[in-house]
Amino acid sequence: MTYFSVSNVTKRFGGLVALDDCSFAIEPLRTSCVVGPNGAGKTSIFNVITGFIKPDTGSVVFKGEDITLATRHERVGRGIARTFQNLQLFEELTALENVLVCLKDESANDPLTAIFRPFHTNAVLRRKTAEAAALLEQVGLGHKLDAAASSLSYGQKKLLCIARVLATNAELVLLDEPTSGLAAGALDAMVELIHKLKEQKKTLLVVEHNTQIVQRIADEVLFFHRGHLMAQGTPAEIVANEELGRIYFGKGAGK
């Protein structure tokens, strides 16, 4: 059984073809980087996989089940979660609260329980607070638990995004440009964190522009161009492909 696959997915926005008959499969526990020039369809394929846009045609299958029409929260429940290129944090909440509201644990998550079972709710709150703190510790934000998300540096915000996606307990984690805009130190911390996620047996799908980072983290690369999957292979195979180099870096590149 294929772990995860996208088959013949096409998505048009008016005259613009965002995704053009895309098909690929991903093996579990591997890190696949999605690369390609701007407008290649990288974020669009993320949006299709996580249910933020519905494809015009094609299907998405996860662990043998067709999830093409599943709601967004159903997909998270099945174990697929994502981060966003533009972060999408709860800016006014603390780092701890940002993670706490993303925890998969649904207990005491309704108004009647909160009002009529206060002691139980309190116990759940304590447990969730501890879990959220542990996740923040894991991503290196243990010293920022009570800081408002808006007060964090850009690099810290990106780490907070990872903590939130981990809180959902997803096994297939989609990271949309986790290293973009990061300074050298923060960039190394992020790469180290991605390696940690691999050790925790997460399957990763990562949109990444930096080819050096791709070579440091990727087991395989999916190369997109104009909404079409041009190639899928190891980083070495993709780098060696001169045509892809020309598309990505411009005319004459790779020579």
Binding site: V76, A81, F84, F90, V101, A108, P111, A114, T121
Partner: peptide, 25 residues
Amino acid sequence: LLMRSPHGKLLHAIRLNEIAAVAAG
């Protein structure tokens, strides 16, 4: 009681960023 519960924090989160709340399942 509602405001201090995990659910209360979720309600605030939804106001602040509904997309992020949906993405978190």
